[in-house]
Design a binder for these strands. Structure first.
Lengths: 188, 188, 188, 188
DNA sequence: ACGTAAGCGAGACGGTACGTCGCGTCTTACC
DNA sequence: GGTAAGACGCGACGTACCGTCTCGCTTACGT
């Protein structure tokens, strides 16, 4: 974003930013991120359009800020692997459903994929076998694991969270292991 | 698209549509689908802008037509599962790399996911075990398989196709089996 | 017009031109000349648009042809002064009302003025006094007479012809005489 | 116009509107109102095209504003009858010459006629005789007077104002009287 | 009467102007 | 200093007409 929302700021500033962010989230859920305009956001937030630009470069900048807040919330925790992520997604399910769907944004999707991959990579790294010549490439496995995680998340979102995050985390770890595991070994 | 390009049409029409489609593909690769404008396309194609609108509603309509052509080419073949798809992607690697990346389009990505899912579903359906009570839901497995396929494809595209489509298909079938397979059983 | 409709032409040609002219007149009355488009005319005439251009340069050309036909009808007669003109206008009152009104055309109005002036000039020329130094300029009187004729015609058209052409001609000659007459003389 | 240019507005607004109006007048004189495009006007005024639409609906709206300004200037004065109007026209002779000519606009001509008629009606109303049965209808006389006034103005404009407005006003009043006067009486 | 050249329908195409929308920058005045 | 209000330049959008053109079909005309 244009300027870090350093600790304690002017009260009006905090109020404005909050109004904008709320409007942004609401509207993203309602009509999709792609179709959003800055005017939409400011009208909903009852803030002048030029004020928006004093705080953000554009709607992507606002999204960025939101993601950073999310990141700080989820990163600084203890639970292992994707559990925190899932818990967080559970709360903002509507938002994620839209952002990852056809009315969302490819930048966001990309970023979310990378984020997912990072989390899964740390989890499954130790489980991966030493690279063998004729076996599946490690990178391929990792990519598949990360995307399988995405797939599970997508399924979870579409079904309106049919199970607890813990349950899904467990299932996911099984799937990860299956992919990372001793594939191709049996052939020996 | 606005009108089906029924069989053999006016020669000029075929020429115009082809020029537009080529320009569209080139420019998508060069600067991304999201940043494309109709004017960009028509200038590259050396076609008047108003002529564009005589054939397509907008750039999405043009994309749609392209996808339909692709679909017809890949659907009517014999090879099983995703092999045809991979072969096809191999030829348009640049295009897919962009469209599925951050400069692509979420609608396209969605559609591609669904297409992928359909192909994998048919392949792995028979491999799926009967639904057990405490095992992973079938839909979850399917979603993971489809996304793992996507992940493999993404890896393949990013690495600039480090292996043959046949090789990747083989690896993918292994991964599919691993996900579809008797997970949770070992716990017994 | 593009080509003189020389005497006897191809039957199809005559038919097409007639259809176009009729449609043109109807539509001019209905929605005004200014708002007319070539497409309007050809659709009403049930003639292909490109056929229009085979016969006329544009809608002005079509108008031109119509005026020429009118001219030939009214010019080659015996009655003196503006009587013939008024009789003719009486028949096409709707058309003239529109063409001379706010939805008409300034070119047409100009032409009509000149035509009117020519007719009145011949009538009142002999009645004009010899140019005196301090009297009204002859040209001024003529212009006023011509425009007064226009005004009478406009009044006639607006009121939906409240009197016979002959009656109006008589009144007009009185007015012409009054303007042309011995103005300023009384001062002597 | 879209919005009244209430009293004192934003300086930039006044500047923009003025530039547009000047460009409009210049170009109208140069190439005629009919052939004017919005782009012509904005390029001459060195103003962005979309800014034009922020102030006016179209070129007719701009014309309207100009006419209103003119009206306010000429209406609120003391001199009797058409003298003010003639004085005003004298200053914008080029503009009026074009607007009333073949490259002008029929709406404008209509409006100008009505305006002229209004002014002459007030002047000559008292001079008109009581309506007699067989005499010229009052409305006809009025229309002729108004148009004669137009004719005089046209003559004045075409000749590049060969006399003073006062002189023309005098002549016009003579003509008006002649038309309004005791016509038809002599026949008795 | 009949073959043929024309008139014609259909519609693609390049052009130009339109009026609208969203963006990001800016200035001014208020509080 | 933050904000409201809103003018402005910029540039893409999709639409509407224009006038030109090519391509076959059909139809009235000339021999």
């Amino acid at each position: 974003m244009t300027q870090k929302p350093e600790a304690s700021e002017d009260l009006r500033v905090r109020r404005t930013r909050k109004l904008l962010q709320q409007a942004f989230i609401e509207l993203t859920v309602e009509k999709g991120f792609a179709a959003l305009t800055v005017r939409d956001i400011t009208e909903r937030a009852m803030v002048n359009r030029s004020t928006f630009y004093r705080h953000y470069l554009d709607k992507y900048d606002l999204l960025e800020e939101y993601l950073n807040e999310i990141y700080e919330l989820t990163a600084s925790q203890d639970a292992p692997g994707p559990l925190n992520l899932l818990k967080h997604i559970q709360q903002r399910a509507d938002f994620y459903r839209v952002m990852l769907g056809p009315k969302g944004d490819p930048f966001f999707a990309q970023r979310f994929r990378q984020n997912t991959e990072k989390r899964f990579r740390s989890v499954s790294a130790q489980a991966l076998p030493e690279p063998e010549t004729d076996a599946l490439p490690v990178d391929l496995r990792l990519s598949c694991i990360a995307y399988a995680g995405l797939g599970a998340t997508a399924w979870w979102l579409e079904q309106e969270q049919p199970c607890s995050p813990e349950q899904l985390t467990d299932w996911l770890s099984q799937i990860s292991s299956a992919i990372a595991g001793p594939l191709h070994k049996p052939k020996r």
